[in-house]
Nucleic acid binder design. Structure first.
Lengths: 159, 159
DNA sequence: GGGCTCTTACTCGGATACCGTGTGTCCGAGTAAGTTAGG
DNA sequence: CCTAACTTACTCGGACACACGGTATCCGAGTAAGAGCCC
């Protein structure tokens, strides 16, 4: 799985603590974790395309959350970065084997494919059960100083 | 995810139908689905290293299941091909951020990491719940002619 | 006929190329803020 | 002083290289079967 997923999730959570009506540039989000700014920008673009962030160009521009943290699931972010395809892709191996394949969709009927898909669905269900708001809340509960420290750090980066 | 997983799972199920005490060569297993023999051989080697298959060289050699189909989970096969690492690898992004990181293992404490890991565990749990014997049984129940057809096809490939 | 030896062909196993995707970087189009000049 | 146009610097966005892992292939080490020969 792409490393960008980790970057994207942490950046989204950070954005929830900076919500002051103004956008945050990719450069600042990158500097926070010492990441390559241009490449993080690429990932943020993917989030914007997926409707998770909104991007505004020009001075005082940058990214901000497109909707409430409660309405952004972790699965949304993963899908935006990794794409919507399942990890296991059924290539319909059975079609190359013996037997009659007339009008059969092995993606539906193949037992192997079904088993892998079931696991995939369990994975997605788990990720869809967590929202960015949940992450934010858990961090605030366990590490109460983090939001303030994060805000302060971004303030200092502003200079 | 590697395409070899699909090949490996189908090959394992096929082997359950051919269990006659003698091994099956990678070439024949490959021919069944018109796969590149040398490359399938590579995947079967991985299964052998993982203790799922046993390999015997020389004439009348080949591969056979190392243990009963009930004792081989789908997760075992996936792990043998893909490796034991999680799909999401926590690079401890937080360590590059602000704050004190003395003696902290973010793979354990980071909320993002925990969330991703929980999903990963759900995935694995699902795969660990299905064995090769389960796949075999389901196929035999739904498509009763398959075992016989498979055996016959392999008989013809023997020539 | 039985047993030993040698040949032989066959199998896996790892070492070797090739290619696509993720990783990383760069520069240009567009925009909004700040400035300046005019009314 | 207010307004409007211009300049300017800043941001995203996509186009361009690089690297690594999955894909595919080939040839060699080892082995067991089978033939042949001797007893």
């Amino acid at each position: 799985m792409s490393e960008g997923v980790e970057w994207a999730l942490h950046s989204c959570v950070n954005l929830t603590w900076l919500e002051t009506g103004e956008a945050v540039t990719a450069a600042r989000l990158a500097e926070y974790y010492r990441l390559p700014a241009a490449y993080l920008n690429k990932q943020l673009q993917a989030l914007a395309r997926a409707g998770i962030l909104t991007s505004t160009p020009g001075p005082r521009g940058g990214f901000r959350l497109a909707r409430a943290p409660e309405d952004i699931t972790v699965l949304d972010v993963v899908t935006a970065i990794e794409g919507a395809d399942d990890a296991f892709q059924c290539r319909e191996l059975l079609r190359s084997g013996p037997g009659d394949h007339e009008g059969v969709d092995y993606r539906k009927t193949c037992v192997v494919s079904q088993t892998m898909r079931r696991a995939e669905l369990a994975y997605r269900r788990e990720l869809a059960g967590s929202t960015i708001a949940d992450l934010k809340a858990t961090v605030e509960k366990r590490y109460a100083w983090v939001p303030g420290m994060t805000r302060t750090t971004f303030e200092n980066l502003r200079t």
